[in-house]
Simulated scan of single mutants.
Amino acid sequence: MYSDYSKKFMQLFSDVGEAPYLDGVDRTIPDTLWHYTSISALKSIIETKTLRLGHIRFMNDGAEFEYGSRILREISIEDFSGSSEFFSLFQDILTMSTSADVPVATPFIASFCSKHDSLPHWQSYASGGRGVAIGFKREAFSKVPGFGILPVMYGESNFKRAVRSIIEKIADFCGDAKNNLDGGDYNLLLIDISVMFDAMCMTLKHNALEFENEFRLCNTDYYKKVNLCFTENSGIIKPHILYNFNDISDAVDRIFVGPVGPQSLAYDGIKCFLDFKGLRTTKVEKFETPFRF
């Protein structure tokens, strides 16, 4: 019975991969998407021909997911406290979304910027200016099924509107499921639904961060079983999945080398490495904007 309702829910939101909650948000994806990272990460990406997508509960800035969760709680109180049906359903979903257990069926993401000259990104994500900005071609992320590029939405208005619409849409469906499923199966269904709200939190950031012009590569088939990998970072074991490039030499357009540290040596080493790995046509440039950290 649970499987039947789970399939019905996925059919109800068959366009979840198209992120209907982003209606009203500019979805124009730039030709080049910039990924700020360390030189060691660049080496790993080229050698393994993969890009790591992190679990949304283990992002570097955990406050991002918590921000979306807080807005969800605010909507629950503001919009649904007067309706026992909606309020009870929304509280049940929030309980599953913020449970202590870490769901495996969930969005995994990698972050990109529309600009290669964002000083905050150099500071925060590229080893304090000692790393690189890798320019990936937009087309590189359209060749693997089950993945997509989504823009981040800044501010709460679109987000709140979408949440209200979805809750109203699924209320009757969940009411029917609750009457026909036992408690365990109904909770499993709520977990499925909570994953969609996790995905929505993934695309929301505070409007003070709009300067980031961020886009996110994510697995759009959230409910498909994934092959998890794990890494340890700062005493925390973090789950992730891998995006496999069909042709890494065709995926990377150019690379900017950070301005901090021995830039010329870093540039020469990267050029030599790329030549050896068959990426001779990839442009490598030095980021010349003067700044201090």
Rank of each mutant, 00 (worst) to 15 (best):
S165T: 10
C113A: 04
P107Y: 01
S157Y: 03
A140P: 02
P103Q: 11
A126G: 12
N187S: 15
A126Q: 13
Y154L: 05
V163D: 13
I167N: 08
S165Q: 09
A208T: 14
N187E: 06
C174Y: 01
L181I: 01
H121F: 10
G128P: 04
I167P: 08
S165Y: 04
L189Q: 09
L181C: 10
K160A: 15
V195F: 01
N207G: 00
H121Y: 13
K115N: 12
M202Y: 08
S142K: 11
D182E: 10
N207P: 07
C113N: 04
F108C: 10
V132C: 09
Y186R: 11
A110P: 00
V132K: 03
C201K: 15
K115S: 08
L204H: 02
V144K: 12
D185F: 03
T203S: 14
N180I: 01
W122C: 05
F173P: 05
S127Y: 02
P151V: 03
P120M: 02
A199W: 07
G175P: 04
G148H: 08
G184P: 00
S118A: 14
N179Q: 06
G135K: 08
C201Y: 07
G175Y: 03
K143M: 10
F141Y: 10
R130Y: 05
I167W: 12
E168V: 09
A110M: 08
V195W: 02
L189I: 05
A199V: 04
T106N: 11
I170C: 14
I167S: 08
S111Y: 00
A140E: 03
N180Y: 02
S118T: 03
A105S: 09
H206Y: 05
D198Q: 12
S194K: 09
L204G: 13
D198K: 06
G175A: 05
G155R: 08
G135S: 02
Q123T: 15
Y186F: 14
F108A: 09
